[in-house]
Amino acid sequence: MKTAFHPLRTLAVAALCALTLSGTALARDIGDTTSTNHRYVIQRSFPKGALDGLDAATKAKVNQTNARFGVKWLMSFANGDKTKTFCVYEGPTEAAIREAAKANHLPVDSITEVPVTLDAH
C-alpha cells in the first residue's frame, strides 16, 4: 500500500531527526532525573511574510521574555514559505511554554513533549 506524501509531516520528522543527529547538548540521558526542564517541539503558523523581519534584536527580546518563565528557545525549523515553524524549547512545564509564547505574542498550534532522544548510531 502506497502512503501519500505529506510535506508538513515530512518536515516535522526531518526536524526531529536533525535534532537527534546534531550531537548537541539537546539530548539528556533518559535516566537523568536531576533536570527540572523538559524538551518540547512547538508548531506555529504565521501569515506569509511575518518572519521576514526576524533579526537578532527580536530574537534577543524573545529570549529575554522566555527567561521570565524559565523557558529556553533552542532552535527552530521553518517550511519553505516560512508560514510554519517547528521550534525546540526547554522549560519546566507545557504551561510555562504557553505563557512565554503568550507574553511574546507568538502563536501556538501544538506543543509536544519530546523526552526521548533516538540516536541514529
Rank of each mutant, 00 (worst) to 15 (best):
M1Y: 02
K2I: 07
T3E: 11
T3R: 07
A4S: 10
F5A: 12
F5Q: 08
H6E: 15
L8C: 02
T10G: 04
T10A: 15
A12N: 06
A14C: 05
A14K: 04
L16R: 11
C17L: 14
A18Y: 11
T20A: 14
L21V: 13
S22A: 15
S22D: 15
G23H: 07
T24G: 14
A25Y: 00
A25G: 14
A25V: 03
A25C: 01
A27Q: 12
R28K: 13
I30C: 04
I30K: 07
T33R: 12
T33S: 13
T34Y: 04
N37W: 00
N37R: 06
N37H: 07
N37T: 13
Y40I: 09
Y40V: 09
V41P: 00
R44D: 06
R44W: 03
R44C: 07
K48P: 09
K48I: 12
A50R: 11
A50N: 06
L51Y: 00
D52S: 12
D52F: 01
G53F: 04
G53M: 06
A56K: 11
T58D: 05
K59Q: 12
K59N: 08
A60M: 10
K61G: 05
V62E: 11
N63H: 05
N63R: 10
N63T: 07
Q64D: 13
T65D: 09
T65Q: 02
T65P: 02
N66I: 01
A67V: 03
R68E: 14
R68D: 13
F69P: 07
F69A: 03
F69N: 07
G70L: 02
V71S: 04
K72H: 11
K72Y: 01
L74N: 12
L74F: 04
L74E: 15
A78D: 03
N79H: 05
G80W: 02
K82R: 13
T83W: 05
T83R: 05
T83S: 10
K84R: 14
V88K: 01
V88G: 04
Y89A: 09
Y89F: 12
E90Y: 10
E90N: 11
G91T: 01
P92A: 04
P92V: 12
E94T: 09
A95H: 07
A96I: 03
A96P: 01
I97H: 03
R98A: 14
E99N: 14
E99W: 00
E99G: 08
A100S: 15
A101H: 15
K102N: 08
K102V: 12
K102T: 11
K102L: 12
N104F: 03
N104P: 03
P107H: 02
P107A: 05
P107R: 09
V108K: 08
V108H: 08
D109H: 00
S110I: 04
T112Q: 11
T112R: 08
E113S: 11
V114I: 15
P115M: 07
V116S: 10
T117L: 04
L118I: 15
A120Y: 08
H121V: 11
